[in-house]
């Protein structure tokens, strides 16, 4: 029974993280300021990294964190700096 409760707590935490990451995706799509959208996307990536950690895949966490939180937002910020910051209607 105790084992079941601890398992359920892990699944609950994963469900909450999934909800939060989906909200971050929604915010990233709705945001007109592209820099903020990139930051929301990075937040979503960190939630995904946490999910991978709870799914017991530390190797994927180690790929996901530098690539999705470090490198991709960096490249996107460089690209935004070469175009316009605000999305048009």
């Amino acid at each position: 029974m105790k084992y079941m409760i601890s398992e359920t707590i892990v699944y609950l935490i994963m469900a909450v993280i999934g909800v939060l990451s989906t909200i971050a995706v929604y915010m990233a799509i709705q945001e007109r300021d592209l820099v903020k959208a990139v930051i929301y996307s990075a937040v979503q990536s960190s939630f995904y990294a946490l999910l991978y950690y709870f799914l017991m895949a530390p190797d994927i966490v180690l790929v996901y964190l530098p690539v999705a939180v470090g490198l991709i937002p960096g490249v996107l910020l460089i690209l935004i700096s070469k175009t316009e910051r605000w999305e048009k209607e």
Binding site: P58, D59, V61, L62, V63, L65, P66, V67, G70, L71, G74, L77, I78
Partner: peptide, 21 residues
């Protein structure tokens, strides 16, 4: 331990990117 060449290399590449920005 968990990790490997690609993971380590991608982590190292974050440093020059931050320096560039």
């Amino acid at each position: 331990t968990p990790g490997g060449g690609f993971q380590g290399g991608a982590t190292i590449a974050v440093a020059p990117m931050i320096i560039i920005i």
